[in-house]
């Protein structure tokens, strides 16, 4: 993230924890579901568990925005998130239409949050370019 304010450090800690939990839950779910070791309602619960840390990432960003006392740093993350949202929604719209016309294969829905997280990287680049000091 942008700078090491105390809110940013808490955000980074939360993201690391969520990433570890996500990895553990994903591997567990893949193992259990691919081998049909769980069925019925339990299969649904196991299947949704890896999604929860991903939702948590969005929550972590929201918490950072509410906890960060530095308005300039908040503005940078808001801009970064807007770039990510624009990228993901544009991608989903374009792919959706092309898929609807049978011009592209079906893409799983969780591809769009992944693209959104990639968009945060693009947003960071946009911030870097826009916030460069004039020579």
């Amino acid at each position: 993230m942008l700078c090491s304010s105390s809110a940013a450090r808490r955000y980074q800690r939360r993201v690391i924890i969520l990433a570890v939990v996500y990895t553990a839950l994903l591997f567990s779910a893949v193992y259990l579901l691919n081998r049909h070791l769980v069925t019925g309602v339990v299969a649904y619960i196991v299947g949704i568990l890896p999604a929860l840390p991903v939702v948590g990432f969005f929550g972590a960003i929201g918490m950072y925005l509410t906890e960060e006392r530095d308005e300039y740093l908040r503005m940078l993350l808001v801009r970064q998130s807007l770039v990510a949202t624009g990228l993901a929604m544009t991608g989903a719209t374009l792919w959706g239409f092309l898929e609807g016309f049978d011009l592209l294969p079906h893409l799983v829905g969780y591809a769009w949050p992944i693209l959104w997280f990639g968009g945060l990287g693009l947003g960071a680049c946009v911030n870097h370019v826009l916030e460069r000091n004039p020579a």
Binding site: L2, C3, R69, D70, Y72, E131
Partner: peptide, 12 residues
């Protein structure tokens, strides 16, 4: 009670 980046961004 802000970041150095904030001061820099305001100054410029």
């Amino acid at each position: 009670d802000v970041s150095r980046q904030s001061v820099n961004a305001i100054e410029t």
